[in-house]
Computed example of a mutant assay.
Amino acid sequence: MRLVSFDAFRTLGLPGIHYVKPEHFLHQQALVDAADWVLFPEFWQLGTLVFALRKRIFPSLSSYLLGHDKIEMTRAFQAVAPRHVPETVIAANTPDDADRLWSTLTPPFVAKIPRSSMGEGVSLIESHADWTRYLAATPTIYAQEYLPIDRDLRVVIAGSEVVAAYWRLQSARSFHNNLARGGRIGDDPVPPAAIELALLLARTLGIDHAGFDIAMVGGHPYVLEFNRLFGYQGLNGRLDRLAGAILDHLRTQGDHHGPHDPIRPTPVWPTAA
């Protein structure tokens, strides 16, 4: 299998990888043309790779498009599993909408900047001053009910396999559970309902590389978000398993696709010197 990677770090452990710097991908188009898969492209490369060069990409296009914006992600979750999404309000950031929502929402609640990760841009709104600071930082209002939790679950999926699942305990310095924001890994058993919800969403939405964040409230799982590019801190030596799951997925999906677009010339894969 011929693989081109645009992210050397995230494809460690995969055999036969040719690494190409994202900004050089058109200068090395012959190599990209000849690849069976291109792995971990930058978001700005997707249009050319998928629609012009007709390449198979990993993670999937769904993983990129839904993972790029919390608003699109949440709407997809609501369509697939509405009972498992916290109450969420999405509105234009206008003075009228901001005043209306402040008069109807009951603090504390959570407000998020739609394009953010690792807990950045996620605020606990407890006062009007918090609300004003949030409004000054976001193009769109995304407000969500505050769940009574002091931990959540990270469920890591590659291909169709759960590679890891673990609790993230709340940081001592904030309400965030993200490891990047001071959260800690817990060792309590992971509820099967959280695994089942993550797998349901991944399979239904075509997400094949993600860390899903799941909260448990009274035994009921709620999906908070997923991160297409997740941290490795909680994998605890499972990087080989992650690489194996990715490789198995690429092989399996490759069997379900036909040859390269026939209007394009058959590329030549470089041989080792």
Rank of each mutant, 00 (worst) to 15 (best):
F6Q: 10
G13C: 15
I17G: 01
H18K: 10
E23L: 15
H27C: 14
A30K: 07
L31I: 10
D33F: 14
A34D: 08
A35S: 11
D36M: 12
E42T: 13
L46C: 08
T48V: 11
F51G: 10
F51Q: 11
F58A: 04
S60T: 04
L61F: 05
S62A: 05
Y64H: 13
Y64T: 04
L65N: 02
K70A: 00
T74R: 02
Q78E: 14
A81C: 10
I90A: 11
A92N: 14
D96A: 15
A98P: 06
A98C: 09
L101W: 11
R115Y: 02
S117I: 00
G119T: 01
V122P: 04
V122L: 15
L124S: 12
E126K: 15
H128A: 07
Y134D: 06
A136Q: 04
A137T: 04
A137D: 13
Y146G: 03
P148Y: 03
P148H: 05
R151F: 04
D152A: 02
I157T: 02
V163G: 01
A165K: 00
A172W: 15
R173H: 08
H176N: 02
H176G: 00
N177K: 11
G183R: 03
P191F: 15
A193Q: 13
A194F: 09
L201T: 01
T204D: 04
G206K: 09
F212T: 01
D213W: 13
I214W: 04
A215P: 02
M216A: 06
V217N: 01
H220E: 11
L224E: 00
N227S: 11
N227C: 13
L229A: 02
R238D: 03
L239C: 14
D240T: 08
R241Q: 07
A243L: 14
T252L: 12
H257G: 14
P259F: 07
D261H: 07
I263D: 09
V268C: 09
A272D: 11
